[in-house]
């Protein structure tokens, strides 16, 4: 991958990630996250992970982010106060984050010898066929367990988001009235 492609793309990716953290409007945060995920998908293409790149755009930038945007618009949030009213604590958080970034970069850079290109990849590396053979071969049990996990997640999401839940909130006096007026559902 040429530096002329990598560095601008990495800049856009990091700027979008900063936008997720720093913007006051949750919708803008979500759109920044879509942009960051899209940049990552482009990196995946250059790293010969074509199926993963396609899944990244379809599952993440498509389905998951649409879910986020639905919830944000459903809650009808006004812009909140961004980083909050305690800038000192945010400053500590940013310093700790910079420290984590520095130590991670140092550790990961020393893990790879500079200039080493690793092995020569076969022509079929990263194709759907190879990945599917591995998923349905070596990782078959994990794959089936994942399907069970998705089923549990679907059932859990429906139970949690159901409107007439029987859990008790703080406004216990308001709950019976709300339940009775929405009984037809």
């Amino acid at each position: 991958m040429s530096p002329l492609v990598f560095y601008p793309l990495a800049f856009v990716c990091i700027a979008s990630a900063m936008g997720v953290v720093l913007s006051k409007n949750p919708v803008r945060s979500a759109l920044c996250l879509v942009s960051a995920l899209f940049c990552l998908a482009i990196f995946y293409v250059f790293l010969q992970a074509h199926l993963v790149a396609a899944l990244q755009i379809i599952v993440y930038a498509g389905a998951v982010m649409v879910l986020f945007l639905f919830v944000i618009t459903l809650l009808n949030l006004e812009s909140d106060r961004g980083l909050g009213e305690r800038p000192a604590l945010s400053g500590i958080g940013f310093c700790a984050g910079a420290f984590v970034a520095a130590s991670l970069v140092a550790a990961l850079s020393s893990a790879v010898a500079p200039g080493s290109r690793g092995v020569v990849l076969p022509q079929t590396f990263g194709t759907t066929k190879v990945l599917a053979r591995q998923l349905f071969g070596d990782y078959l049990v994990a794959f089936e367990l994942t399907s069970v996990l998705l089923l549990v997640a679907v059932v859990g999401a429906v139970v949690l988001a159901k409107r007439d839940g029987s859990y008790e909130g703080d406004e216990q006096d308001a709950a019976p009235a709300r339940q009775s007026e929405e009984a037809p559902h």
Binding site: M1, S2, P3, F6, A10, C13, I14, A17, M18, V20, V21, P26, S29, A36, F43, L47, F68, V71, I72, L75, L77, D80, R81, L83, G84, L89, S90, G93, F94, A96, G97, A98, V100, A101, L104, V105, L108, S109, A111, V112, P114, G115, S116, R117, G118
Partner: peptide, 29 residues
């Protein structure tokens, strides 16, 4: 561009995410 560059980018993105999870108040963010 080698593997080290991608790992460094991944470290930076992870740190930005960690900072966001610590400093923001909005649960969705």
């Amino acid at each position: 561009i080698g593997t080290a560059h991608f790992l460094a980018l991944s470290a930076v993105l992870f740190s930005i995410g960690a900072v966001g999870a610590v400093v923001r108040r909005n649960v969705i963010i």
